[in-house]
């Protein structure tokens, strides 16, 4: 026998919709929860900026393996990391194993550069400060070919806009994997992070690996974080929000990004779920008690 309130699925859907939409309508944002892993990631990027001062040409590779299904978390992560790299003038190249990532690879850096230019008055240029290698098919084999290539110009041939490598200033002096000090890998798709971890290395050089994961894979990613197989980790949108907080502390003129707004709504959504779990369990308890009483009669 079932007693008490039974919420219809559609009623729960409506409740979720309303509760989550309220903070978005009122445009409220509160300080995100502290993320130790985001602090470590921030320091890793700062280290890269320091190492860059020795003058040797170097290119940070961003494997933005995101898709519409993971964009809500991977996009804010990619944005904050690109912003940090641009602010510290660390040259970077974007690549992806997922064909659906192509619109993001084109739009994201451009949008951030426009935002930064408004804030600082400085300029950043495609081909000099960043390059988009686009989607590259072949997954494991492609990464292995990349890592062992003796001439990256020959490997890439052109960027995503079919511009030959020799015309891109950023690629001057970039010959092999040894010229790539770090790989930033952002994904939520199963198996993609692992193939970068397994094959993006050579006998002589293993680039520092920073990983941005979706929240589902956080427990899995910690397993690599505690072994130092990854040197930095951004945990879903919460990691991106704390990273934004770190950037805002150092650059006070910076406009807050949307990771912070998402976090506020997320917070309320989580509390709603906890409340619903509580209601569900109270119902369970009520049913148990009622059934016990009926049996006693």
């Amino acid at each position: 026998m079932n007693y008490g309130l039974k919420l219809d699925s559609r009623l729960i859907f409506l409740l979720v919709f309303i509760v989550v939409a309220i903070p978005l309508v009122y445009d409220s944002s509160i300080k995100p929860a502290k993320m130790e892993t985001a602090n470590v990631t921030y320091q890793e990027l700062e280290k890269l900026a320091e190492n860059q001062k020795n003058g040797k040409p170097a290119l940070v590779l961003i494997a933005a393996d995101l898709a519409p299904s993971t964009q809500s978390e991977n996009e804010p992560q990619t944005s904050v990391l690109i912003e940090h790299l641009l602010r510290r003038r660390i040259p970077f190249g974007l690549i992806s194993l997922i064909p659906f990532a192509t619109p993001y690879l084109e739009q994201m850096p451009q949008e951030i550069v426009t935002k930064l230019a408004q804030e600082t008055g400085e300029t950043w240029e495609y081909g000099k400060d960043w390059v988009n290698f686009g989607y590259r098919p072949g997954s494991t084999i492609m990464i292995q070919k990349f890592a062992k290539s003796k001439d990256l110009h020959e490997f890439f041939k052109t960027d995503a806009q079919a511009i030959p490598m020799k015309k891109l200033e950023i690629m001057k002096g970039i010959k092999t994997i040894q010229d790539i000090p770090a790989l930033i890998e952002l994904t939520g798709t199963v198996g993609v992070f692992n193939v970068w971890l397994q094959f993006f290395r050579s006998d002589q050089h293993v680039p520092t690996l920073i990983h941005g994961c979706t929240a589902i894979t956080i427990p899995e990613a910690y397993n690599y974080f505690i072994t130092n197989q990854i040197s930095g980790l951004l945990e879903g949108v919460a990691g991106a929000a704390w990273y934004e907080e770190l950037l805002s502390e150092v650059y006070p003129a910076r406009k807050p990004g949307h990771a912070l707004k998402i976090m506020t709504a997320l917070s309320i959504g989580n509390i709603l779920i906890i409340v619903l779990i509580g209601i569900g369990n109270l119902q369970e308890l009520w049913n148990y008690w009622k059934n016990k009483r009926t049996r006693n009669f």
Binding site: P32, A33, N270, I271
Partner: peptide
């Protein structure tokens, strides 16, 4: 599950 949910969100 509850501790992790509460630990990753801001509470204002």
């Amino acid at each position: 599950a509850l501790l992790i949910m509460l630990g990753q969100i801001p509470h204002g």
